[in-house]
Amino acid sequence: MGDNMKMRAQLKGGLVEVKVLMSHPMETGRKKDDFGQLIPAHFVQLVTATLNGKTVLEAQWGTGIAKNPYLTFRLKGAKVGDIVAVTWLDNVGASATQDIAVTAA
């Protein structure tokens, strides 16, 4: 699962900035392959982020999020060493989770 997500969480000016890059095709279901066959929809639908196990962000996504989704969000009141985790679930039932400790910028 580790290859599915790259994460960074840095304390900057009182806020922890979390950057996430997920590896996912985000297929809309409207695109055709080289043989003219429709490529089935395959996209992340739900994303959740936690800080030390407590949910801080929840998202629902459609097919309009770009391939290999990128997300930045910012947390108040988090400190160096706190654990930020992100989980995604896609429309075919696959999921991935990654966590990282907050570091000083």
Binding site: L15, M26, T28, L51, K54, T55, V56, L57, E58, A59, T63, G64, I65, A66, P69, Y70, L71, T72, F73, R74, L75, K76, G77, A78
Partner: peptide, 15 residues
């Protein structure tokens, strides 16, 4: 959806 501990800001990439 943001919790009270999350800044209501984000960066993402869309189609």
């Amino acid at each position: 959806v943001f919790s009270a501990d999350t800044e209501p800001s984000l960066v993402t990439r869309i189609k």
